[in-house]
Simulated scan of single mutants.
Amino acid sequence: MPEQQSRRRTGARPLAFPAALATLAFYALRCRPRLLTWGATRDETARSYPGDELVPDPDGMSTMATTLPAPPERVWPWLVQMGYDRGGWYSWDLLDHYGRPSADRIAPEWQTLEEGQRLTAVRDGRSWFTVALLDPNRTLVLRSDLNLPQGRSFDPRTDPEPRARLDGIWGFHLRPAPFGETRLVVRTRGRGHPRWLTRPFDLVLGEPAHFIMQIRQFHNLRTRLDAET
């Protein structure tokens, strides 16, 4: 009996490796491309957007899109007031807003935004997004420069360049759509250093996490716009 159990165990080991390879191949070839382009058309994924030039040689990129039930000038105020200490991020608040509900109304006090302004990303203020590009009702590009060892943001214009870092953009691009709607395309581009450290982390955690948070944001923006009508 022990010999039979031993044979079964040793026989199962060679099967585990091919199964793992098949799972990885399925994710890489079928699942991952869909995560990175969820909702976007071929034209939307292929074209360039303002802000792409800020990360010219990205290690990773995604283009996700949705149609929102309002014209760009009604969608824009919701985007302008994003930020941890402003309207939130309209995503999974338990994960990115410490459980505080994101705003469900347009707040006049959060409608002022300008290029170079910092939007706090977390409660302790250690990390933030910088408004890199701003074209009202059309384009909002947020930039992130993260010092990985410290887990906090840095200013590439004034701070020493960390040995391990992650640079990226999160761009929101609005275009009018038929029937008074808005086509919202969200483009991300990221580059890490050293690549051997940052790229596996992005593949395993970063890209799936962004997908989960971004589709939730799309849903919540749509819900808020529906409530306005």
Rank of each mutant, 00 (worst) to 15 (best):
G60Y: 12
G60I: 03
G60A: 15
G60W: 14
G60D: 11
M61T: 15
M61K: 15
M61Y: 08
M61P: 00
S62L: 14
S62V: 00
S62M: 06
S62E: 13
S62Q: 14
S62T: 11
T63C: 15
T63V: 15
T63G: 03
M64W: 06
M64F: 05
A65N: 01
A65D: 03
A65R: 01
A65Q: 00
A65K: 04
T66D: 01
T66G: 02
T66F: 04
T66E: 00
T66S: 02
T67H: 01
T67V: 15
L68C: 11
L68P: 05
L68M: 09
P69W: 10
P69I: 10
P69A: 06
P69F: 06
P69N: 13
P69V: 10
P69Q: 13
A70K: 13
A70W: 13
A70D: 09
A70N: 12
A70I: 07
P71F: 01
P72F: 04
E73W: 06
E73K: 08
E73Q: 10
R74S: 10
R74Q: 12
R74A: 11
V75D: 03
V75A: 02
V75T: 13
V75C: 10
V75Y: 03
W76T: 03
W76S: 01
W76F: 12
W76C: 06
P77A: 02
P77Q: 07
P77C: 05
P77W: 05
W78Q: 01
W78E: 00
W78V: 00
W78H: 13
L79G: 09
L79H: 09
L79V: 05
V80W: 01
V80M: 08
V80Y: 07
V80A: 13
V80E: 10
Q81S: 03
Q81Y: 02
Q81T: 03
Q81A: 07
M82V: 12
M82T: 14
M82G: 01
G83L: 10
Y84P: 02
D85V: 07
D85R: 15
D85C: 12
D85K: 12
D85N: 15
D85F: 05
R86S: 03
R86L: 08
R86Q: 13
G87R: 11
G87M: 08
G88M: 12
G88P: 04
G88T: 10
G88Q: 10
G88I: 08
G88W: 01
W89V: 07
